[in-house]
Simulated scan of single mutants.
Amino acid sequence: MNEFIPGIDLDLFNDEPANVATTIQLLLILTVLSLAPSILILMTAFTRIVIVLSFVRTGLATQQMPPNQVLIGLALFLTFFIMAPVFSEVNEQALTPFLDGEIGQEEAFDRAATPMKEFMANHTREKDLALFMGYAGLDRPESIDDIPLTALVPAFAISELKTAFQIGFLIFVPFLVIDMIVASVLMAMGMMMLPPVMIALPFKILLFVMVDGWYLVVQSLLLSY
């Protein structure tokens, strides 16, 4: 029976450098794959898009319509659409040369980080970046290459959160006006026991459809980048 069972070599640090290098590459690939969701959320346009879409649903007060799967799926495809030039540059400058064996891992990482840094720096407030640079005791950077990812990523994330909440506030205003008008009318008619949210919901949906709300929201998101 034993002759049919293949042997498994668990000695990762043997005397053959090629095997060690392959093992390290596999470990790095697995590490990157495990961090991929965090990279997608915090280093791309996904954060702003999914928060704004959530604000739209909350403003409409439609509970789970559209469902989370639809919002996240739409946010993902919008993220890929917005980030397509950046991903293409990363693929051309870093991924393809690395897979072809033309450059090493460190150089591939540096090349891949440059387009991502440029994108994040263009949408990061100077105040947010200065917060993390100052806390880390780093000097004022002369160029984007001098900004470490450990400071740029959280600065970009809080900048995206502020921008998303600003857009969300503007989305909430017309819906809030409708709620106030409906509540005032119901109170004036003496219908205090009738929930204003139930009456305002169809008017909000009607307004959102008449102005082509999804088109305007997606257009605003695209123009914001």
Rank of each mutant, 00 (worst) to 15 (best):
E102P: 00
T31N: 10
P97N: 06
T163N: 12
A136W: 15
I181Y: 01
S159F: 04
P202L: 08
E102L: 09
T96R: 06
T79F: 10
F98Y: 12
E160P: 01
L27V: 14
R57L: 02
V153Y: 03
L222D: 09
A36K: 13
L138M: 13
L60F: 12
I205D: 07
T163R: 11
L129F: 09
I24R: 09
A75Q: 05
D179C: 06
P6H: 00
I41W: 07
R140H: 13
G101Q: 03
V52N: 10
V90Y: 08
V50M: 01
R111Q: 03
L207W: 11
D9I: 00
G137I: 09
L138Y: 14
L40I: 10
L222A: 11
A108T: 02
P97T: 01
L131H: 12
I39F: 15
I144N: 02
A188V: 06
V218L: 01
Q69Y: 15
Q105M: 12
F87R: 02
Q64T: 13
F119R: 04
I5D: 00
G59P: 03
A164T: 05
L216N: 11
V50P: 00
V90Q: 04
L152N: 06
T31M: 15
A188M: 15
N19P: 02
K204D: 10
D110N: 12
L206M: 08
I51G: 07
A36V: 11
I82Q: 07
I199M: 05
I82G: 03
L26Y: 14
M133D: 12
A183Y: 03
L42E: 09
G213Y: 07
S54V: 07
E126H: 10
V185H: 01
G73D: 13
A136L: 15
Y225R: 06
T79M: 08
M65G: 07
V50L: 01
N14D: 05
L71D: 09
L138H: 10
R125Q: 14
V56L: 15
L10F: 07
Q63C: 04
L207R: 06
P37T: 06
L71H: 12
P67K: 11
G7I: 00
L76V: 14
P66C: 02
L201Y: 05
A84R: 11
I39Q: 11
I158D: 03
L35P: 09
P97H: 02
S220T: 13
L161S: 03
E102A: 13
F132R: 03
S184Y: 03
G134T: 14
N68F: 10
F169I: 11
L76K: 11
P67G: 11
D212G: 08
L95G: 00
A75W: 03
L53P: 00
G101Y: 05
K127N: 10
P148T: 02
P202K: 05
F132A: 09
I158C: 12
D139Y: 14
F55R: 11
T150P: 01
L33C: 08
L27H: 07
F81E: 02
V211K: 06
L60C: 09
P196A: 08
L28M: 12
